[in-house]
């Protein structure tokens, strides 16, 4: 099964489970969780089922294309099921079967992993899912997002696509993954990995990045105060990525680090609050249970 088929199979599988198949979000981000289809939609009472591929960037993980397991740009396959269904783990295991991974022929474990994102003011409890000793998926029940309690709670399933592909194709290097017949992962991404590593670690201009961070922060604040949560959130994502770049340049001291993280978290909270407000004003249109919708809306009026 080539890389592309893995993605197509997952999309097909989750589409059948009733998920919207969204496309990757067009702003740089560190993980699929930061896509507004997860970060914003996990907030508030409305149900939401979505899945999508997410190209993710972690500048500090770059290795100039020399390490067989580490990349500064890689792919996640993200699923959000809100509220978390009772059979969510069975649904996940069936998705593995669909990829040809028969759980009873392997050793599949759910090992405690508590996820926390200080920049997003978010945390949840769940597991790393191991396939014969290798972590292939992160599974999280969101408890808080942007500093707000998640209710209902959603289940987030994040597949590490390269790892799964390496396992299925029996490859020892990520660059050897077959993308389609005759084209491998290296053909698609290797030179960019080398170039980005060089840029991230050596060339990114610290003073420009710092200026950009400050500008984006200001823009996020201004737009959030005009009650436009998603446009504001774009600039929160930009801040987060700029911070990651500065971090990769090794110019941020421990103290400054805490400061930057707090600044991004404050923006994330602000946007999360604006988003919640907006959905309420819209009358929670995705809430099909009319009684619940009315009771939530009236409850909040009383408050």
């Amino acid at each position: 099964m080539n890389f592309q088929e893995i993605i197509l199979r997952l999309q097909n599988y989750w589409s059948k489970q009733g998920c919207i198949i969204q496309q990757p979000y067009d702003v740089e981000k560190g993980a699929g969780t930061m896509n507004p289809a997860t970060f914003l939609r996990s907030l508030g009472p409305e149900p939401w089922q979505v899945s999508y591929v997410e190209p993710s960037r972690r500048p500090t993980d770059g290795r100039y294309g020399e390490n067989p397991n580490r990349l500064q740009h890689y792919y996640q396959y993200q699923v959000i099921l809100k509220p978390s269904p009772d059979n969510v783990i069975d649904l996940y295991l069936d998705s593995l079967r669909d990829l040809g991974i028969e759980p009873d022929k392997h050793d599949i474990r759910l090992v405690e992993d508590n996820w926390e994102s200080p920049t997003l003011g978010a945390w949840g409890l769940g597991w790393e899912i191991w396939l014969d000793g290798m972590e292939i998926t992160q599974f999280t029940y969101f408890q808080q997002c942007g500093g707000f309690d998640c209710y209902p709670v959603c289940a987030e399933i994040t597949y590490g696509l390269e790892r799964i592909a390496m396992y299925i194709q029996n490859r020892e290097s990520v660059f050897d993954i077959e993308w389609v017949d005759g084209i491998n992962y290296a053909d698609v991404h290797h030179q960019a990995e080398v170039d980005y590593s060089r840029y991230n670690f050596e060339l990114a201009d610290v003073s420009s990045l710092t200026t950009m961070f400050n500008l984006c922060e200001q823009e996020a604040l201004n737009i959030a105060n005009r009650h436009l949560p998603q446009p504001a959130y774009d600039y929160v994502l930009k801040c987060s990525h700029l911070f990651n770049l500065l971090d990769a340049r090794g110019t941020i001291s421990v103290t400054e680090r805490t400061g930057y993280i707090a600044r991004v978290r404050n923006l994330a909270r602000l946007v999360a609050g604006e988003y919640l407000e907006q959905r309420k004003n819209l009358g929670y249109p995705l809430l099909k249970d009319e009684e619940l919708r009315k009771s939530l809306l009236s409850e909040e009026e009383v408050r």
Partner: peptide, 22 residues
């Protein structure tokens, strides 16, 4: 230590060896 029987144990062993090797 695998959570299961010795069914396809070779597959499990090979997978674990590969992870550790990396």
């Amino acid at each position: 230590v695998r959570n299961g029987t010795d069914h396809s144990l070779d597959v499990v062993r090979a997978g674990n060896e590969r992870v550790l090797k990396a």
